[in-house]
Design a protein around this nucleic acid. Structure first.
Length: 496
RNA sequence: GCCCCGGUCGUCUAGCGGUUAGGACAUCGCCCUUUCACGGCGAAGGUCGCGGGUUCGAAUCCCGUCCGGGGUACCA
């Protein structure tokens, strides 16, 4: 059975590149009917960040990634926090020392720094000089007895090659002599990533390690560790990094890179998942727009690519629009409402429409119809606020250019007056009725084209020159709202 | 410096020895149309990083080279 894991370190809110590896793991598990495990690698106490764990879980949930074992859900290998399993790592480190596969190192950080500086200056390969590896056992005993702090290092082979197979890249080979005697246990008794990761992957019976490319060069250390412990290594899959527009690894200086930033901006989890999956993975052929379920069915390790990809926000926006249009009216309403109520995005919150929108959203039926009318012309959930504003406010703000162009038309005032009189006493009005009404106005005023009535009416009712079909919007607005706006428009057209 | 991994239109990619190198986003036209979008059609954009081989034939295999990225921590 396939067992894969996402093993983040709670040192910050996960960014899109990081969460994408979680997605790949999840997709493989679902495709193969296996298990997806979340394990928190909280072994770096100095870099721990408050709230990071919540953001990790929230990011996964937002994208629709569910875990079979891990925080909150537990599982047969609980606890899924490395900080709660410290004794295991220490026991294994001791075992490794006893077998001669690891050794205690008493070198201080200062000494190591000096050594590295010497190596740099003399253009030698950097790395630990293995001074403590040859230390006399009795000498080590007395240092321990004296309370001298030490770390535990892995005793790497001194020669030969270390090779492994990567699902994406094939055979990868390293010269053992060039690889450092990695620290396994820090002086404070906590394990490093390398030890804890290998131990847990084995303990949790992980079959495929799908992780970022930045780990490829530490894989030979892991191979040696597996070997020293007498364990069979999993299958390694190193996925390429995601780059910013400048070609370097995506990071904070490229702007929004936190996964949850995109939720704040009005993107759909399904769209973000779809988009990031396509950087470095292809289902083959021309398929692009896919739901999470479709990706699960289509996923294969063979579709993974070795080369890094650039994050293209423009394409994400397009894709978000596509996913937005696929939403049913109810889903649309729920998504917009949830977004509006939770987004803390400053740019969004300070929009003038922000307040009226919340009020407008209270009338579910009316609001849903308004959202549906705008559904095919927006890209983000955050776009609805402005796009639908005219449906909800008492007084629409009128674009000055539009006013100048259409209120000044000679027939504008009489058009509005005619519509107003036709509307008086009416209550509900259908789309067909609105169509007929405009037709009647055209005839009554002797206009040549329907557009001559349509455009000025649109500006009077919405304040804008663009938007949904006029008859649909009129029907939804209803006669009383229309009447108020027509009255105001008549005032604005001034004396005849 | 040393080690490793990459390299197909601006971007994401299909391709797995024989294709007019296909698709998508973005760009530009046209159509649809009451506007804006959506949708449809079309255009432009690639000497498959470069140079050598292997082969009847190479984007696909091999070597070299250049460029890019990653690693080189008591961080993950």
């Amino acid at each position: 059975m396939v067992r894969v894991r996402y093993a983040p370190s709670p040192t910050g809110s996960p960014h899109v590149g990081n969460i994408r590896t979680a997605l790949f793991n999840f997709l493989l598990a679902r495709k193969e009917g296996g298990k997806f495990i979340v394990r928190i690698e909280d072994t770096d106490r100095a870099r721990a960040v408050e709230g990071a764990l919540e953001d990790i879980l929230e990011s996964l949930r937002w994208l629709g990634i569910e875990w079979d074992e891990g925080p909150e859900v537990g599982g047969p290998h609980a606890p899924y926090f490395q900080s709660e399993r410290l004794s295991t790592y220490r026991e294994i480190a001791d075992d490794l020392i006893a077998k001669g596969k690891a050794y205690r190192c008493f070198c201080t950080p200062e000494e190591l720094e000096k050594m590295r500086e010497y190596q740099r200056i003399n253009k030698l390969p950097t790395g630990y000089n293995r001074r403590c590896r040859e230390r006399d056992p009795s000498e080590a005993e007395s240092l321990i007895a004296a309370g001298t702090p030490f770390v535990v290092r892995l005793a790497m082979p001194l020669d030969g090659k270390i090779a492994f197979s990567d699902s994406i890249r094939g055979r990868v080979e390293y010269d053992a002599a060039l690889i450092d005697d990695q620290v396994l246990l820090k002086a404070d008794g906590w394990p490093t990533y390398h030890l804890a990761n290998v131990v847990d992957d084995h303990r949790e019976e992980i079959t495929h390690v799908i992780r970022g490319e930045e780990w490829i060069s530490s894989t030979p250390k892991h191979i040696v560790l597996y070997d020293a412990l007498g364990w069979t290594p999993p299958i390694f899959v190193h996925v390429p990094v995601i780059k910013g527009p400048d070609g370097s690894k995506l990071s904070k200086r490229h702007g929004d890179t936190r996964c949850l930033d995109y939720r704040e901006k009005g993107y759909l989890g399904a769209a973000v998942a779809n988009y990031i999956a396509l950087i470095g993975w292809s289902p083959g052929g021309d398929r692009e727009v896919m739901s999470l379920e479709e990706m699960q069915d289509a996923f294969s390790l063979h579709g993974l690519q070795p080369s890094p990809g650039v994050f293209d926000i423009t394409k994400l926006q397009w894709m978000n629009g596509v996913h937005l249009r696929n939403l049913s009216p109810d889903e649309l309403y729920d998504s917009v409402k949830a977004f509006h109520e939770t987004s803390q995005d400053e740019e969004y919150i300070k929009k003038p429409c922000h307040r009226s929108f919340l009020k407008g959203l209270q009338d579910r039926e009316y609001a849903t119809r308004a959202l549906v009318l705008e559904q095919e012309r927006v890209k983000l959930l955050s776009d609805f606020c402005e796009a639908c504003e005219f449906f909800f406010v008492n007084e629409v703000s009128i674009d000055p250019d539009a006013a100048a162009k259409w209120f000044g038309q000679p027939h504008a005032k009489s058009l509005y007056e005619f519509l107003l009189s036709e509307l008086s006493g009416r209550n509900a009005i259908s789309v067909e009725d609105c169509d007929a009404l405009i037709g009647k106005a055209v005839q009554q005023l002797g206009l040549e084209k329907r557009a001559q009535a349509i455009h000025p009416t649109r500006v009077a009712l919405t304040g804008k020159t663009f938007g949904p079909g006029l008859f649909e919007l009129m029907s939804l607005l209803g006669s009383s709202r229309m009447s108020a706006r027509l009255n105001r428009a008549i005032e604005l057209t001034g004396p005849r």
